[in-house]
């Protein structure tokens, strides 16, 4: 079972930034490499403004930092989005909505955890109603460390994610599929009976675990 305990805080970020350097992507076929290149060139972002980090998403999109030059643009609904940005601490109440939105996104899909709160709870480490480690509930592809990280940091995260995609690294959704029991058990632990309905991960029941 996958468990996320070999890194914490900025270590995770560092590892992820470096992981792409090791990965060459040479084993992909030509078409796959082309598709991967298209994918990394066009990321539709579902910015889920959960915590205070959400404030950094606006300058990211507007004139000063202009994320659109990397092909990053906001999406209105989870159906159209490729990247889910969890911006900061996640209240348990919000977690349910986030999980549902994530499950409604279509693969390949990626999750970016923004801010220390998503890595280890940050300054909410002892809060009674926020989750501490996002990775226990959703498969995070990229962490952006800091409290709160500046838009430059977020852009760096996006660029690292793009490199990862271009190299053909599988999206976190794969991990989610493979370890769905573990993720669901974790989710149930905090949400109790208040779980999102199970038809959004219907492939799990259909025995279609890839």
């Amino acid at each position: 079972m996958y468990h996320h305990d070999h890194c914490e805080g900025f270590q995770c970020e560092q590892q992820q930034l470096e992981a792409t350097l090791a990965h060459s992507g040479g084993e992909l076929g030509a078409l796959d490499r082309l598709i991967a290149w298209f994918r990394q060139r066009s990321l539709f972002v579902l910015a889920y403004g959960t915590g205070c980090g959400a404030i950094e998403m606006r300058p990211l999109m507007t004139s000063r930092f202009d994320a659109e030059r990397f092909g990053i643009i906001g999406a209105a609904t989870p159906r159209q989005a490729d990247v889910l940005v969890i911006s900061g601490y996640l209240a348990i109440k919000t977690l349910k909505r986030v999980i549902r939105s994530y499950e409604q996104m279509q693969e390949p899909k990626y999750v970016i955890g923004l801010g220390s709160c998503t890595i280890n709870g940050g300054m909410y480490w002892d809060s009674y109603n926020t989750i501490k480690q996002l990775d226990h509930y959703l498969p995070v592809d990229m962490y952006v460390n800091g409290c709160m990280p500046r838009p430059e940091a977020l852009i760096e995260g996006f660029v690292a994610l793009q490199k990862q995609i271009a190299n053909g690294a599988p999206s976190g959704a794969m991990r989610y599929r493979e370890n769905i029991d573990w993720y669901k058990a974790n989710q149930r632990r905090v949400l109790g009976d208040n779980m999102p309905p199970d038809y959004t991960y219907d492939w799990y029941h259909a025995g279609d675990v890839a």
Partner: peptide, 28 residues
């Protein structure tokens, strides 16, 4: 983008977006 004083995406951006969607692995 230029009107808004940004650099803006590449001129082929719509093509990339379109291809990305056409090659998504899942469609509901």
């Amino acid at each position: 983008a230029r009107v808004q004083r940004r650099w803006g995406p590449s001129i082929f951006q719509n093509f990339f977006d379109n291809m990305k969607f056409l090659f998504k692995t899942e469609t509901i």
